[in-house]
């Protein structure tokens, strides 16, 4: 038995190393690429709405109670420091998402799932639902200046909802019986039936038109970015696998 065990250690070690390298490399490429595109989409489609809202948040513009305000004010343009930080943090965030996704892809492939750029599209959609849409359905994307409950309470609700939705997505994708679909439905519904922490009163100074556009844009850009991160993750996972096999 002892020689066998030794044999396992010797065999498993390079294989495990290869697995670390394959997961990390695929996730870094996929996350950085999708994150960069996400950041650019955000700068073009979300940032102007956010900057417009901030004019109301700071009181520079006032909604109601005065002369009608133009819906097309002069917005501050590209801010090198602020927007560069946004690009870096978006790339980091999507790399974090990609690490989780590629790790789960490796587990799924071990169970017989096909992982490539095409199936990655569905992984991306599931990731969007898990990390963005499920929490956002009740804790709607917040435009600056919006009234909200205590941030720690909302983070707890956000985290629990994301965890529940993530398990639900896995059960829907890989569950083998009706019970797993039922559990998935319960996991998806319950956080919203319980409800997210809400503010005591509404004091948001931002026009509803801006708030609605912000939520729509945040979800739209989020979905595009997630679908890309999924597809890229599938692509790099497969490409890295072929590269490792070729060099082995």
């Amino acid at each position: 038995m002892t020689p066998h065990m030794m044999c396992v250690t010797q065999l498993a070690s390079p294989a495990t190393k290869q697995m670390y390298s394959r997961i990390l490399t695929s996730a870094l490429f996929a996350g950085a690429a999708a994150g960069l595109i996400a950041a650019l989409l955000q700068l073009v489609f979300v940032q102007p709405v956010l900057l417009h809202a901030e004019l109301y948040e700071t009181g520079e513009l006032v909604h109601f109670g005065g002369a009608a305000v133009s819906a097309h004010p002069e917005l501050p343009g590209f801010d090198l420091m602020r927007d560069s930080l946004s690009i870096v943090f978006t790339m980091l965030t999507y790399t974090g998402y990609a690490l989780v996704m590629v790790a789960l892809m490796s587990v799924a492939e071990g169970r017989g799932a096909e992982i490539n750029a095409r199936t990655g599209l569905i992984w991306g959609l599931a990731g969007f639902i898990t990390f963005h849409f499920a929490p956002g359905l009740t804790l709607a994307p917040e435009v600056p200046g919006v009234a909200a409950a205590d941030v720690a309470d909302r983070q707890i609700w956000w985290t629990a909802t994301v965890a529940a939705a993530g398990v639900a997505m896995w059960l829907i994708a890989f569950g083998s019986n009706k019970i797993s679909y039922l559990i998935a439905a319960v996991l998806l519904l319950v956080p919203h039936l319980i409800g997210a922490p809400e503010p005591d009163s509404f004091s948001g100074p931002v026009p509803t038109e801006i708030g609605a556009l912000f939520a729509a844009r945040a979800f739209g850009v989020g979905m595009a970015a997630w679908v890309l991160v999924g597809s890229f993750a599938g692509y790099f996972w497969q490409a890295e696998g072929e590269r490792t096999e070729a060099s082995a």
């Binding site: 294989a15 943090f89 965030t93 690490l99 996704m101 590629v102 789960l104 490796s106 587990v107 071990g110």
Partner: peptide
């Protein structure tokens, strides 16, 4: 033992990924 070792990289990547997302 092979399966146990096989899951380690995935677990490591998930923890690292969630850590990054928590930070950002």
């Amino acid at each position: 033992s092979a399966a146990g070792l096989g899951f380690l990289p995935a677990v490591f990547a998930i923890v690292l990924g969630l850590g990054v997302v928590t930070l950002t």
